[in-house]
Design a protein around this nucleic acid. Structure first.
Lengths: 234, 234
DNA sequence: CGTACGCTTGATAACCCTCAAATCTAGTGG
DNA sequence: CCACTAGATTTGAGGGTTATCAAGCGTACG
């Protein structure tokens, strides 16, 4: 989620921050809802998700986070965790103390601004997810999620757009607010249309134009330059 | 959305900020999607909403904002508006330049922190809205929205909880991702159950316990102390 | 008194959920 | 190497929630 260019001094300051590296098993929570946090989590490797929960047990993924993302940076300002963080695949997490982050944000205004911007960018994605879940039908919801992940991952290879996204169909269901069964059928529909393949945690976009059209996807909300390969198509 | 206690000096600094007061008609947009903003909007009076849009024309309200809220404070960090801002009722808006806000945030770290916290609090609400739209059925969605507004407005009178919320049923439909017709029927259902009345822009909660139960509402995500009257019930 | 907007109702159909069970896959231990 | 197991994917059938279409009614306002 890099959105800011930092100076060498600022970069050094960040790299000098003390942190505790932690390995997390797939399908396990590393931040529980309701806990008062004293540190923020930097995803070093693996795929993580922020999880909302209803009292009746419904789980809703409200964002995915990959390497370099900080899923709960907002905790520096509001330390009470209002959603859980969960490792989708096996992941490595670097825990950095809120006090250290705050100190750095005040010492280096450029870093403070970058961190603030990071939380704002996260919020922009949340707003778009509300639109996605509230307004689009099953196929479009999935397509939109894949488009977002494609642009955020920025991993392109061969003549198809490919990127790692090791989610189960149950995870996709939780992210789109649909049942597992319907997620499965909608995915099949995208596959049969020759739009997209998903195997072994790798998403292969076969027809970006169609995927984008069914998703009604406009990458503006991500505040990222579309990757070069995409740029030609978008 | 006050979440921070500021010093006298900081309060004075805020009140000295130059701003342009603007009157906005009901049912009109005062920030268009895609515009590059140079100022942020403080809601002085009236009810506003942040609006997401799909290419096919679907509108989705992603939050409501009342007096004292700053719907697009995030624009200070990411000035490209990714959603529109719309006045639900007639409203007064104070536009404050981004550059002035940034300058103040750097001069008074306490203010910078308060502003950052404001954007983070907004994001926490967005995350909960994803859960609401993704996981709950029609009645619960409406109930949850009313619960949130009740706590955020913090207006209690008589032996029923009452607060101003001048939305049309079409607005409620846009906020919950439902059709107008179904919104109407679900509202009737809440009304007939004796849970809640809505007339002339005033919501009167007749049975908070039931409303909260159908909503599966937990106010933690708002990071506010529940109002005194509520506190006895929550 | 006309017009615009908001609320309400009825009928029909589409989309999606739930339940249930079969198949497949990968990892584990004998 | 193979049986065993848990998780993941897939399929079928039936039902319920919600959307869509269409129209009637009320109300505020110029």
């Amino acid at each position: 989620m890099a959105r800011t260019q930092l100076t060498k001094v600022e970069q050094d300051a960040i790299l000098s921050l003390p942190g505790i590296l932690q390995s997390v098993e797939a399908r396990s929570d590393f931040v529980e809802r309701g806990d008062e946090q004293t540190s923020a989590c930097l995803v070093v490797s693996g795929l993580c998700a922020r999880m909302g929960q209803t009292i009746s047990g419904g789980r809703q993924i409200t964002n995915f986070y990959g390497a370099g993302d900080i899923p709960d940076l907002h905790g520096v300002m509001l330390p009470g965790a209002t959603s859980a963080l969960s490792a989708i695949s096996a992941a490595e997490i670097l825990r950095v103390r809120h006090t250290d982050i705050r100190a750095m944000a005040f010492s280096f205004p450029g870093i403070g601004e970058a961190l603030w911007r990071h939380t704002v960018s996260d919020a922009a994605i949340s707003a778009e997810w509300i639109v996605n879940v509230g307004q689009r039908d099953a196929r479009s919801r999935l397509a939109h999620l894949f488009c977002e992940m494609a642009v955020r991952h920025d991993k392109v290879s061969g003549n198809a757009f490919e990127f790692e996204f090791p989610v189960s169909q149950a995870n996709l269901a939780d992210a789109t607010g649909m049942s597992v069964v319907h997620t499965n059928r909608s995915l099949q529909s995208l596959r049969r249309a020759g739009t997209l393949q998903m195997r072994g945690g790798i998403v292969a976009v076969e027809d970006w134009a169609t995927l984008q059209a069914t998703a009604e996807f406009d990458s503006a909300y991500l505040n990222m330059q579309p990757p070069v390969r995409f740029a030609a198509v978008i």
